[in-house]
Structures are given as C-alpha cells and as structure tokens.
Simulated assay, not measured.
Amino acid sequence: PLTRRLFKLPSLPPTPSQNHHDLPSFLAYADRIALPESSTTYVGTHYEYTVQQVLRRFAFSLRRVGGRDDLGVDLVGTWHLPKHEHPLRVFVQCKALKTKLGPNLVRELEGSFNLRSSPVDSGGGGGGKLGVLVGTREATKGVRDAMARSSYPVMWMMVEKERGTLLQALWNAKGEEMGLGGLGVEVQFSSEPSSITKNIALTWDGEEIPGMDEVERDMARLEDRWMALWEKDGPMPESRKWALLDIVEKLYPGEKPLVGTMGFTGTCSILSDEDRKKVLQLL
C-alpha cells in the first residue's frame, strides 16, 4: 500500500474470491474441490489467470475482478511501459471462446469505457484508459475494422490457452495517441522435441519490454533512493513514512519518485533541499 501510494498508482478493487488470486492458487483450489475442467467456471477463470500471467511478462500488473458482477471486465490494473513516468491504466476482457470472435466484442469493450461505479474505475479509472480484448483466436477482419473505427484506445491480443503464449497483438490509432507510439512486436521461434513453436514478444523502441518482476525490483530500489533523501538521521519507522507522505501530498501533490531516473545516480525527486527541510519541520 505504501509503494502504491508513493508512486501514485490507482487503488485495486478486492478480488472476487478468497480462495485464489493467480493461476497456481486457482489450480490448487480447483483440484481441492474437484472442479470439473470442462465447467464454464473452470474454463473462464483458468483463462483469465492465464492472461494475467502472460501479460505480466510484458509489464502488466493486473488484478482479476471477473465474476457475476464484472460488467464485462475481467482484469484491471496498470501497464508499466518504458519511458513512461506514469503507467497506463488498463482494463481487460478475456474471451475463451471456441467460436469466431466478431466486431460485437469490440463494441462491448467500448461500452466498458463509460461504465460508472465499475471495476474499471476502481482498478484503473480516471484519466486515460486502454481497453484490451484478449481471445484464443486471431482477430478477424471485422474485429480489425471495428478497432480502426473506434474512438477509444483499444488493443487486441491473442493468447493461446494451452501453452499460455502471446501470438498476436494489435492496437488502433487512438492507442498510439495515448502513448503506444514506441510499441512493437517481435516474432520469436523456439524448438521443441517434435516441432518449432512461434510466439511474439512486445517491444519498446526495438527492445523487449521488461517483465513486471523486473519493474517491481526497479521500483523498490527507486523507493529506497527516494526515502534515503529523508532519512539522513537513520531509517524511518513505517508510521513515520505514512505521516511523511501525508505532508508531501498536501504541500507538493505532484511529488513522487521519478521513474525516468531508474538506473541513474543523482536525485530522483523534483523537490529541493529547502522543500524537504520544510516538510521535515512539519513532520
């Protein structure tokens, strides 16, 4: 919670289940209660967690919100793209359908942009939002045309259900406008005992996008650097850190650790020594 507040990340909605929160915990739960693998609940939930896991490799931090009241939204969170001081807010609809996926799904996705009191707003709302539609089949011409016509920033991804691999990624002009200008796709091949398999990786300015594990490690190091600016007399207890944030947010609402300084030495703050002295006097 402290890290999310410090980096001004949107609050996440509660998970719809107390029994699982990712693919491994869901598989353990399904095995424990003998949930049939052919059931709608198993197929849908398994695919949502598969998508969550796959997209984490490309710096998506997503929380599952799927359930009876998901209003069409299955995952919400943030996309931590390189060279972005603030992550993009995203919501995802997952379609584990065997039938052809048509343009009606794009219209359904568009409808989620305007929902009020929805998982979209509690998990990734406010400001610009990117809607992501994920399916098990390639986008049809109808889907591609609907995306091109859309007045919202939308993205299509094909994620294979069995192997959990990303096989297609498309986005529209509105997505480019909201910050996807450096995004690219790289086709990769891997050899297996009986075949050669293909998948794609997402890139930024030609470089593969770091996974969320790496992003979180970088954020932790950056948080330590930012806190060190205030801890000249030794480490602060957790309660004092929260009090510090209260004052900083009140006096300097735009202040946060500067993501653009990751990997560099020097300051990671927009505040001057005098600004920090003023805050510490009030602490």
Rank of each mutant, 00 (worst) to 15 (best):
R5C: 04
L12H: 02
P16D: 07
S25F: 06
A28H: 08
P36A: 10
E37C: 06
E37V: 03
T40A: 12
T41S: 15
V43L: 14
H46K: 08
E48A: 08
E48D: 11
V51S: 05
L55R: 02
L55Q: 07
G66M: 07
R68K: 14
D69Y: 15
L75A: 09
L81F: 13
K83Y: 15
V90A: 05
V92G: 09
Q93A: 04
Q93D: 01
K95W: 12
L97K: 11
K100I: 15
R107L: 13
R107S: 13
E110L: 07
R116A: 14
S117P: 06
P119W: 01
G123H: 01
T136G: 13
A146E: 13
M147G: 10
M147H: 08
S151A: 14
S151E: 14
P153C: 09
E160W: 12
E160A: 09
L167H: 10
L170W: 08
W171R: 02
E177S: 15
E177G: 09
G179A: 09
L183R: 00
V187A: 09
Q188M: 05
F189I: 00
F189M: 08
P193L: 01
S194R: 06
T197I: 13
I200G: 05
E208K: 10
I209Y: 10
I209D: 03
R217T: 06
R217P: 02
D218I: 00
M219N: 03
R225S: 15
W226R: 04
G234R: 04
K241Y: 02
G254K: 00
G260T: 09
T265N: 13
G266Y: 12
T267V: 12
T267A: 14
D275V: 00
V279P: 07
